[in-house]
Protein backbone atom coordinates (compact mmCIF):
# COMPACT_ATOMS: atom_id res chain seq x y z
CA UNK A 1 0.00 0.00 0.00
CA UNK A 2 1.04 3.60 -0.33
CA UNK A 3 3.47 5.47 1.87
CA UNK A 4 2.32 7.77 4.66
CA UNK A 5 4.68 10.62 5.52
CA UNK A 6 4.89 11.38 9.22
CA UNK A 7 6.52 14.67 10.09
CA UNK A 8 7.86 15.27 13.58
CA UNK A 9 8.12 11.51 13.87
CA UNK A 10 10.02 11.47 17.16
CA UNK A 11 7.08 12.57 19.27
CA UNK A 12 5.15 9.96 21.20
CA UNK A 13 1.94 10.75 19.34
CA UNK A 14 3.74 10.46 16.00
CA UNK A 15 5.18 7.07 16.94
CA UNK A 16 1.78 5.77 17.97
CA UNK A 17 0.29 7.05 14.71
CA UNK A 18 3.11 5.41 12.73
CA UNK A 19 2.34 2.08 14.42
CA UNK A 20 -1.35 2.48 13.69
CA UNK A 21 -0.82 3.10 9.97
CA UNK A 22 1.76 0.31 9.63
CA UNK A 23 -0.60 -2.09 11.39
CA UNK A 24 -3.21 -1.19 8.80
CA UNK A 25 -0.85 -2.07 5.99
CA UNK A 26 0.72 1.27 5.03
CA UNK A 27 4.42 1.83 4.36
CA UNK A 28 6.01 4.75 6.15
CA UNK A 29 8.31 7.71 5.71
CA UNK A 30 9.37 8.92 9.15
CA UNK A 31 10.76 12.45 9.01
CA UNK A 32 12.40 14.27 11.89
CA UNK A 33 15.51 16.16 12.88
CA UNK A 34 18.43 13.88 13.94
CA UNK A 35 16.44 11.04 12.50
CA UNK A 36 19.17 8.54 13.43
CA UNK A 37 17.48 8.47 16.84
CA UNK A 38 14.57 6.73 15.15
CA UNK A 39 16.67 3.83 13.89
CA UNK A 40 15.57 1.40 16.61
CA UNK A 41 11.96 2.45 16.35
CA UNK A 42 12.03 1.91 12.59
CA UNK A 43 13.61 -1.56 12.93
CA UNK A 44 10.94 -2.48 15.44
CA UNK A 45 8.16 -1.37 13.09
CA UNK A 46 9.64 -3.29 10.17
CA UNK A 47 9.95 -6.49 12.18
CA UNK A 48 6.51 -6.19 13.74
CA UNK A 49 4.58 -5.28 10.63
CA UNK A 50 6.71 -6.37 7.67
CA UNK A 51 6.09 -2.93 6.12
CA UNK A 52 8.64 -0.66 4.47
CA UNK A 53 9.79 2.04 6.89
CA UNK A 54 12.19 4.75 5.72
CA UNK A 55 13.68 7.39 7.98
CA UNK A 56 14.39 10.85 6.53
CA UNK A 57 16.15 13.86 7.97
CA UNK A 58 13.96 16.94 8.04
CA UNK A 59 14.50 20.14 10.00
CA UNK A 60 11.11 21.82 10.24
CA UNK A 61 12.83 25.18 10.92
CA UNK A 62 15.03 24.98 7.83
CA UNK A 63 12.27 26.24 5.53
CA UNK A 64 14.55 26.47 2.50
CA UNK A 65 15.19 22.74 2.59
CA UNK A 66 11.55 21.67 2.48
CA UNK A 67 11.10 21.77 -1.29
CA UNK A 68 14.12 19.59 -1.94
CA UNK A 69 13.07 17.25 0.82
CA UNK A 70 9.75 16.65 -0.88
CA UNK A 71 11.17 16.50 -4.40
CA UNK A 72 13.62 13.83 -3.28
CA UNK A 73 10.86 11.45 -2.26
CA UNK A 74 10.88 8.97 -5.10
CA UNK A 75 7.43 7.67 -4.41
CA UNK A 76 5.17 10.47 -3.22
CA UNK A 77 3.23 9.68 -0.04
CA UNK A 78 -0.49 9.00 -0.27
CA UNK A 79 -1.03 11.05 2.84
CA UNK A 80 0.83 13.17 5.33
CA UNK A 81 0.50 13.59 9.09
CA UNK A 82 2.25 16.41 10.89
CA UNK A 83 2.84 15.78 14.56
CA UNK A 84 5.27 18.66 14.89
CA UNK A 85 4.90 20.43 18.19
CA UNK A 86 6.94 22.45 20.63
CA UNK A 87 5.36 23.49 23.91
CA UNK A 88 8.24 25.75 24.90
CA UNK A 89 8.55 27.70 28.10
CA UNK A 90 5.84 30.34 28.30
CA UNK A 91 7.47 32.36 31.04
CA UNK A 92 10.85 32.34 29.36
CA UNK A 93 9.28 33.26 26.05
CA UNK A 94 7.64 36.36 27.56
CA UNK A 95 11.02 37.96 28.04
CA UNK A 96 13.14 36.03 25.54
CA UNK A 97 12.01 36.59 21.97
CA UNK A 98 14.17 33.71 20.70
CA UNK A 99 11.95 31.32 22.64
CA UNK A 100 8.81 33.02 21.34
CA UNK A 101 10.11 32.74 17.80
CA UNK A 102 11.00 29.09 18.28
CA UNK A 103 7.50 28.29 19.53
CA UNK A 104 5.81 30.11 16.66
CA UNK A 105 8.09 28.85 13.91
CA UNK A 106 8.04 25.25 15.04
CA UNK A 107 4.32 24.96 15.61
CA UNK A 108 3.18 27.13 12.74
CA UNK A 109 5.62 28.52 10.19
CA UNK A 110 7.48 25.27 9.65
CA UNK A 111 4.32 23.22 9.21
CA UNK A 112 2.83 25.85 6.86
CA UNK A 113 6.01 25.74 4.79
CA UNK A 114 6.07 21.99 4.20
CA UNK A 115 2.29 21.69 3.94
CA UNK A 116 2.22 24.37 1.21
CA UNK A 117 4.55 22.27 -0.89
CA UNK A 118 2.66 19.05 -0.37
CA UNK A 119 -0.73 20.73 -0.86
CA UNK A 120 0.32 22.02 -4.28
CA UNK A 121 1.34 18.55 -5.34
CA UNK A 122 -1.82 16.91 -4.00
CA UNK A 123 -4.00 19.55 -5.60
CA UNK A 124 -2.54 18.70 -9.00
CA UNK A 125 -2.81 14.98 -8.43
CA UNK A 126 -6.31 15.35 -7.07
CA UNK A 127 -5.60 12.83 -4.37
CA UNK A 128 -4.04 12.49 -0.96
CA UNK A 129 -4.88 13.47 2.58
CA UNK A 130 -3.29 15.88 5.04
CA UNK A 131 -3.57 15.66 8.81
CA UNK A 132 -2.28 18.39 11.09
CA UNK A 133 -2.01 17.88 14.82
CA UNK A 134 -2.99 21.18 16.36
CA UNK A 135 -4.19 21.54 19.95
CA UNK A 136 -7.12 22.53 22.12
CA UNK A 137 -4.75 25.21 23.39
CA UNK A 138 -5.38 26.98 20.08
CA UNK A 139 -9.11 27.33 20.78
CA UNK A 140 -8.63 30.10 23.31
CA UNK A 141 -5.56 31.90 24.61
CA UNK A 142 -4.74 31.42 28.26
CA UNK A 143 -2.03 33.10 30.28
CA UNK A 144 -0.28 29.82 31.06
CA UNK A 145 0.56 28.93 27.44
CA UNK A 146 -0.75 31.55 25.02
CA UNK A 147 2.38 31.61 22.88
CA UNK A 148 2.05 27.90 22.16
CA UNK A 149 -1.72 28.38 21.96
CA UNK A 150 -1.51 31.24 19.48
CA UNK A 151 0.82 29.28 17.18
CA UNK A 152 -1.59 26.35 17.30
CA UNK A 153 -4.51 28.75 16.66
CA UNK A 154 -2.69 29.88 13.53
CA UNK A 155 -2.21 26.27 12.49
CA UNK A 156 -5.90 25.54 13.09
CA UNK A 157 -6.91 28.49 10.90
CA UNK A 158 -4.39 27.42 8.26
CA UNK A 159 -5.77 23.88 8.15
CA UNK A 160 -9.32 25.17 7.94
CA UNK A 161 -8.42 27.34 4.96
CA UNK A 162 -6.48 24.56 3.32
CA UNK A 163 -9.43 22.19 3.71
CA UNK A 164 -11.63 24.77 2.03
CA UNK A 165 -9.17 25.25 -0.84
CA UNK A 166 -8.51 21.55 -1.48
CA UNK A 167 -12.09 20.37 -1.16
CA UNK A 168 -12.71 20.58 -4.89
CA UNK A 169 -9.46 18.76 -5.61
CA UNK A 170 -10.70 15.79 -3.59
CA UNK A 171 -7.87 16.24 -1.10
CA UNK A 172 -9.00 15.81 2.45
CA UNK A 173 -7.55 17.92 5.27
CA UNK A 174 -8.12 17.04 8.91
CA UNK A 175 -7.44 19.11 12.00
CA UNK A 176 -6.67 17.16 15.16
CA UNK A 177 -7.04 18.83 18.52
CA UNK A 178 -5.75 16.63 21.31
CA UNK A 179 -6.43 17.60 24.90
CA UNK A 180 -4.10 16.23 27.52
CA UNK A 181 -1.96 13.35 26.27
CA UNK A 182 0.48 11.37 28.34
CA UNK A 183 3.74 11.99 26.45
CA UNK A 184 7.29 13.23 26.92
CA UNK A 185 5.94 16.76 26.38
CA UNK A 186 3.63 16.53 29.38
CA UNK A 187 5.89 14.37 31.59
CA UNK A 188 5.94 15.74 35.10
CA UNK A 189 2.62 17.60 34.74
CA UNK A 190 -0.16 16.55 37.02
CA UNK A 191 -2.85 15.62 34.50
CA UNK A 192 -6.42 14.60 35.40
CA UNK A 193 -6.64 10.91 34.52
CA UNK A 194 -10.13 11.02 33.01
CA UNK A 195 -9.27 13.79 30.61
CA UNK A 196 -5.89 12.40 29.61
CA UNK A 197 -5.41 10.15 26.61
CA UNK A 198 -2.63 7.69 25.96
CA UNK A 199 -0.79 8.29 22.67
CA UNK A 200 -2.19 4.98 21.34
CA UNK A 201 -5.72 6.21 21.95
CA UNK A 202 -5.02 9.41 20.02
CA UNK A 203 -3.50 7.35 17.21
CA UNK A 204 -6.56 5.10 16.93
CA UNK A 205 -8.84 8.13 16.88
CA UNK A 206 -6.74 9.85 14.22
CA UNK A 207 -6.63 6.81 11.95
CA UNK A 208 -10.35 6.13 12.22
CA UNK A 209 -11.32 9.77 11.73
CA UNK A 210 -8.97 10.19 8.77
CA UNK A 211 -10.39 7.08 7.08
CA UNK A 212 -13.87 8.52 7.58
CA UNK A 213 -12.71 11.91 6.27
CA UNK A 214 -13.67 13.81 9.37
CA UNK A 215 -12.79 17.50 9.33
CA UNK A 216 -12.03 18.31 12.93
CA UNK A 217 -11.21 15.73 15.56
CA UNK A 218 -11.09 16.35 19.28
CA UNK A 219 -9.37 13.54 21.21
CA UNK A 220 -10.46 12.52 23.79
CA UNK A 221 -13.93 13.35 22.41
CA UNK A 222 -14.94 15.06 25.65
CA UNK A 223 -12.60 17.93 24.81
CA UNK A 224 -15.03 19.05 22.15
CA UNK A 225 -17.54 19.89 24.85
CA UNK A 226 -15.01 21.20 27.32
CA UNK A 227 -13.68 23.63 24.72
CA UNK A 228 -17.20 24.61 23.71
CA UNK A 229 -17.84 25.71 27.27
CA UNK A 230 -14.48 27.42 27.54
CA UNK A 231 -15.06 29.34 24.32
CA UNK A 232 -18.46 30.49 25.56
CA UNK A 233 -17.17 32.15 28.68
CA UNK A 234 -17.47 35.92 28.07
CA UNK A 235 -14.15 37.70 27.74
CA UNK A 236 -14.79 40.05 30.69
CA UNK A 237 -15.15 36.96 32.83
CA UNK A 238 -12.43 34.89 31.15
CA UNK A 239 -9.75 37.52 31.65
CA UNK A 240 -10.11 37.22 35.42
CA UNK A 241 -9.88 33.46 35.46
CA UNK A 242 -6.99 31.13 36.12
CA UNK A 243 -7.56 27.93 34.17
Amino acid sequence: MSYILIIGAKSDIAKAIAREYANHGYDLYLAARNVAELKDFASDLRIRTGKKVKTLDLDILDFESHRIFYENLEEKPGGVVSAVGYLGDQEKAQSDFQETKLIIETNYTGVASIFNIIANDYEQRKSGFMVGISSVAGDRGRKSNYLYGSAKAALTAYLSGLRNRLHNANVHVMTVKPGFVRTKMTAGMNLPARLTAEPEEVARDVFRAQQKRKNVLYTKWIWKWIMLVIRMIPEWQFKKMSI
Binding site: D40, F41, S43, D44, I47, R48
Partner: peptide, 17 residues
Protein backbone atom coordinates in the same frame (compact mmCIF):
# COMPACT_ATOMS: atom_id res chain seq x y z
CA UNK B 1 12.03 -0.22 26.10
CA UNK B 2 10.48 -2.93 23.99
CA UNK B 3 11.77 -2.60 20.42
CA UNK B 4 12.73 -5.45 18.15
CA UNK B 5 16.10 -4.42 16.71
CA UNK B 6 16.86 -7.17 14.21
CA UNK B 7 16.06 -10.74 13.31
CA UNK B 8 18.19 -13.20 11.37
CA UNK B 9 15.96 -15.65 9.53
CA UNK B 10 18.76 -18.13 8.96
CA UNK B 11 19.93 -18.57 12.55
CA UNK B 12 16.79 -17.49 14.41
CA UNK B 13 18.77 -14.89 16.34
CA UNK B 14 16.54 -12.09 17.62
CA UNK B 15 17.99 -8.81 18.88
CA UNK B 16 15.44 -7.24 21.18
CA UNK B 17 15.28 -4.59 23.88
Amino acid sequence: KNYFLSFDESSGLLHVQ
